Deep mutational scan, measured.
Amino acid sequence: PQECLLLEPGLNEIMANSLDYNERLWAWESWRSEVGKQLRPLYEEYVVLKNEMARANHYEDYGDYWRGDYEVNGVDGYDYSRGQLIEDVEHTFEEIKPLYEHLHAYVRAKLMNAYPSYISPIGCLPAHLLGDMWGRFWTNLYSLTVPFGQKPNIDVTDAMVDQAWDAQRIFKEAEKFFVSVGLPNMTQGFWENSMLTDPGNVQKAVCHPTAWDLGKGDFRILMCTKVTMDDFLTAHHEMGHIQYDMAYAAQPFLLRNGANEGFHEAVGEIMSLSAATPKHLKSIGLLSPDFQEDNETEINFLLKQALTIVGTLPFTYMLEKWRWMVFKGEIPKDQWMKKWWEMKREIVGVVEPVPHDETYCDPASLFHVSNDYSFIRYYTRTLYQFQFQEALCQAAKHEGPLHKCDISNSTEAGQKLFNMLRLGKSEPWTLALENVVGAKNMNVRPLLNYFEPLFTWLKDQNKNSFVGWSTDWSPYADQSIKVRISLKSALGDKAYEWNDNEMYLFRSSVAY
């Protein structure tokens, strides 16, 4: 590609939709070469300064400071330590791993069909083939991996386009969902002041979706909304933040926050679980009234959910574990990228498509890292959202599997949720969690119950496949010279610098 592309739109479109291996590689590498390399010296300084700040406030390091958001002291029976968070994340991840490994094996087999000769049947997945710029969410792999393609499509993007949905309609439908469970409408100022579409040439905007509580009843969302099912669900997520903000607005200023950061992320995700169900999509006209649910549509639905929800958990866990180790000084600065990709291979089963030396800073190419967000919130929120969903479905008197529950129109479920939201940070999160779900610790069981039918199906699908991955295989081993030459021509001086062995191999191949 010759034109100058922004991340959004532009590069993200390539990473969402392109099936051209080399075009995807160009976009993936260009973003890291342009952005990651510029941020490397800044990120090194950032780590030093943030650690100084944390230690001045009596924390061991900046990662310890972040984990302090979960700490509860002096509340008998509800205490929770920063170290306990690490333990809980690690042991819940071990419980999730078998499901993830089977999802990984299934996706690898489907990617082998889409990119023959580029995928190893026992290796890691190349990082640039996973549906977005970071491989964070695998949602866009659904069209390549759908188990029963002859069934009606449960990705309702086409239906939204056919019905001329726009950003306003998407957010109005999200608002209807919250109102149906007894939560309030958005304010008039929300509709007047939010930026729900890309302003285009009028001004440059950071398009990463964010929710804003500017105080004095001024709530806004910034999002360059596209007419897709993914953005339909994202709208519910962002509006969930606003509902939380509005619910605790009466609290004293210092207590106007989520019980912990994971709670804030979980609220909209609960609504997304219901909004994505075929039952709900039928009720708002995005699935045909004669759409029939059966075992095959159930597996299609659960796989689509797993690509988004299960596929991202190792990504989140590994990223934050790397940062915690960096802040603690356990990874020397001259080994940041080496350790990043070692951990990516070992924990996530994902491999870099071309080698990256220590001039890169791949983590900082992600919005949340370069903008100083702690990231473990996206792991804890996933466990909380299924715990909350299970409890709210019980309040809504849902009968049947958890993945079929739609809590819309249940004011009982809405009241149970609101009673927790309005507390803000005035009560320990362990107590707030217990008030809703009857337990005071994160628990992976509801998530595993939700995906149980899919897990059973995946194990059957993978019975003749290798489950797990070898960390030795690299996608650039066989194609390295071709890849390096093409990237050198595209990126010039910003391309990865060849070492002596690679230059010798190149000259030998040319001479041959």
Rank of each mutant, 00 (worst) to 15 (best):
K216Y: 15
R256T: 06
A250N: 05
H264W: 10
N140W: 02
G215R: 01
S272T: 10
P252M: 11
S272Y: 04
S272C: 03
R377V: 03
E269C: 06
Q251C: 04
R220G: 12
N193L: 00
T210N: 09
Q188Y: 06
L233W: 03
W212F: 11
Q305A: 04
H208E: 08
R377T: 07
F367A: 09
F219E: 14
H368Y: 06
F137D: 04
R377M: 06
K304T: 08
D213M: 11
R220V: 13
S374P: 09
H264S: 02
F301S: 08
S272A: 07
F253M: 11
G189Q: 11
V206N: 05
E269R: 07
T210D: 08
T187F: 09
D218N: 15
D213I: 13
G215P: 14
T187C: 04
K216Q: 15
R220Q: 13
I309F: 06
T139Q: 05
H208A: 03
F219G: 14
N153F: 06
H208N: 09
K216C: 15
G217K: 15
H264K: 10
M246V: 06
R136V: 05
R220A: 14
R377L: 08
Y373K: 01
D213V: 13
R377I: 01
H237E: 02
D218K: 15
L214H: 02
D230F: 02
E192R: 10
R256Q: 03
A249E: 11
Y378S: 07
L214Y: 11
A250T: 10
H368D: 07
M246N: 12
F253P: 11
Q305F: 02
Q188C: 10
D218Q: 15
H237V: 06
R377D: 01
N140K: 04
E261A: 06
Q251P: 11
M246S: 11
Y373I: 05
I309D: 01
T210I: 10
T210P: 13
D218R: 15
P252T: 08
E261H: 05
S374K: 03
Q251R: 11
D213P: 10
E192H: 10
Y378L: 05
N193V: 10
G189H: 13
F253A: 14
V206G: 12
V206K: 09
F137I: 09
R220K: 14
H237W: 07
H237S: 05
R377Q: 10
T139L: 04
D230E: 08
M229Q: 01
F219V: 14
F219R: 14
L214M: 03
K216T: 15
N153S: 06
N193A: 12
I309H: 03
H368P: 07
T210V: 10
S374I: 06
D245A: 02
G215M: 00
S374N: 04
T210Q: 09
D245V: 01
H241R: 05
D230A: 05
F375D: 02
P209S: 07
Q305W: 02
M246T: 08
S272G: 06
H368N: 08
R381Y: 05
E192L: 08
Q305V: 02
K304N: 08
